[in-house]
Computed example of a mutant assay.
Amino acid sequence: MALFSSLSKSKQAQAPLPGLSLGVLVGNIALLWVWAQIPVWYRSGSADLDAYATFWDAWLGAAAISAMLLLTNAAVLYWATLPLALPHLEEAGPVDKAQFWKHHFVFWLCVSFHLVCLAFAGWLALTILTKGWHWPF
């Protein structure tokens, strides 16, 4: 039992790694890019324009984009932004200056990701409402 308590204490005092958080952020951006490219890849292998139009509407519809933005934002928030935002550094003891700046740089990249996604979702909702529920693209 003492073994598990000592492991949990040492894990709590360890500062979060900015590289891991950056990996989560880059992975989610790559996921969004690949997800947006799938209709283009489908079109390159298909000559059926009606099937392509149906696939495009379903894959890049407002509900699908909203779901993907919500999922990627939740993943970045849980595995990247919050670990860097929580006060782990005070518990871990002194850190070198390079680690401090990496930590804050990745944190602000994550915050920028959230703000850009929020701005895009707001623009998308406003555009859809003003165009009478028509897709803006």
Rank of each mutant, 00 (worst) to 15 (best):
W35M: 03
L20Y: 15
L17P: 01
L32W: 10
V26K: 14
A98L: 01
R43F: 13
F55L: 01
F113L: 02
S44C: 03
I65E: 05
M1Y: 09
L17S: 15
T72L: 08
Q37P: 01
P87R: 06
G27K: 09
W123R: 10
A2E: 12
Q14R: 14
S8F: 12
K9C: 04
K9I: 10
H134W: 13
L7N: 02
I128K: 04
E90D: 13
A75F: 05
T81H: 14
W79A: 05
L109I: 05
S5Y: 14
A47M: 11
S5A: 12
P87A: 08
L84K: 00
I65L: 15
N28T: 08
K11M: 14
L77T: 15
S46N: 05
V24D: 01
G93K: 10
W35H: 06
A119K: 06
A15K: 03
W56P: 01
G23K: 09
A64M: 04
G23N: 10
G93P: 03
S44H: 07
W33M: 10
L3Y: 14
L126G: 09
F55E: 00
P39K: 08
A74S: 08
C117F: 11
A98R: 02
L89W: 11
A30Q: 07
V106T: 01
Q12Y: 14
L86A: 13
V26Y: 14
G93M: 12
S44R: 04
D57F: 15
W35C: 00
A98T: 02
A121Y: 06
D50E: 12
P16E: 13
H104A: 13
P18N: 12
A121N: 02
I29R: 07
W56E: 12
A119I: 06
D96K: 03
G27Q: 07
H88L: 11
H114E: 11
F105Y: 09
L82S: 09
W33G: 03
L126I: 07
G19E: 14
L25A: 07
A58F: 11
F55R: 02
P83C: 09
A121D: 04
P87Q: 07
G19H: 13
F120R: 03
W79K: 07
A58D: 01
Y52D: 02
L129E: 02
G93E: 08
H134S: 04
F137Q: 02
P87D: 07
K97A: 10
L3V: 08
H103Q: 02
P18A: 14
